[in-house]
């Protein structure tokens, strides 16, 4: 699994950095590196842009697993002087990485700016570098065992529990100009092949949002 990110437009990032001068760049060497938004690619990309615009780059670091608070605690300690000097930290990571940095920094530097350079898209399945697909939205109540292993929440444009809808034409979905497969037809075909149309015929209850419509956490120790 990879958290898929894309680069933000440069003016948007510059706007967020407009009142600062000294910037530390933290580029994530894990998922974002795979998406070429982080790692050495992302670091070089943003360092070049900021330098050209006259920013003072106090440090640029590629760090693996920026989303892990334990990692970031250690790394921030190692870069203590530069972090102290920087007006802002530009993070070429996903939204989890950006907030992991913020979490770790907040005790010592409660007002240090953390600016994100990326847009986080989704948890992605990788076909190859540059081709990632959303196949799960982390709904918290997995249906795959009932739907032939195909997720209706991620593959149906409406996230329906009882599809296909009237927007399906010849197995294709109305969203995206009939170019994408209808998730519910995929489910139908798979269940038919498995001899489990009984599962397809089942009337499914709506998703229960009572546990997942707000902040979620998993704590097991």
């Amino acid at each position: 699994m990879v958290v898929i990110t894309t680069k933000k437009e440069v003016p948007e990032v510059l706007e967020a950095l407009k009142d600062v001068n000294k910037v530390a760049i933290i580029s994530c060497g894990t998922c974002a590196a795979l998406c070429q938004t982080g790692g050495t690619d992302g670091l070089k990309y943003w360092a070049d842009i900021l330098e050209e615009k006259g920013y003072d780059i106090v440090i640029g670091a590629v760090i693996e697993d920026v989303c892990d608070n334990r990692v970031m605690k250690k790394e921030i300690r190692r870069m203590a002087d530069e972090i102290a000097e920087a007006d802002a930290i530009l993070t070429a990571s996903c939204g989890l990485g950006a907030q992991s940095i913020l979490t770790v920094l907040s005790d010592k530097y409660p007002t240090k700016l953390v600016i994100t350079a990326n847009d986080t898209q989704f948890m992605g399945m990788t076909e190859r570098i540059g081709r990632f697909y959303m196949r799960c939205q982390g709904c918290g109540d997995c249906l795959l065992n009932e739907t032939g292993g195909i997720c209706p929440i991620a593959t149906c444009a409406k996230g329906l529990m009882n599809g296909p809808c009237g927007g399906m034409v010849d197995g294709k979905c109305e969203v995206g100009n009939y170019e994408n497969d209808c998730g519910w037809v995929l489910i139908y075909e798979r269940l038919k092949a498995l001899g489990r149309l009984d599962l397809f015929t089942k009337l499914r209850e709506p998703r229960d949002w009572s546990e997942s419509g707000h902040q979620r956490e998993v704590v097991f120790r």
Partner: peptide
């Protein structure tokens, strides 16, 4: 939708 293809999927949906 009687024009639906695959028709069986649509018919089973009416069952639901």
């Amino acid at each position: 939708n009687p024009n639906s293809n695959p028709m069986e999927a649509e018919a089973l949906k009416i069952g639901r």
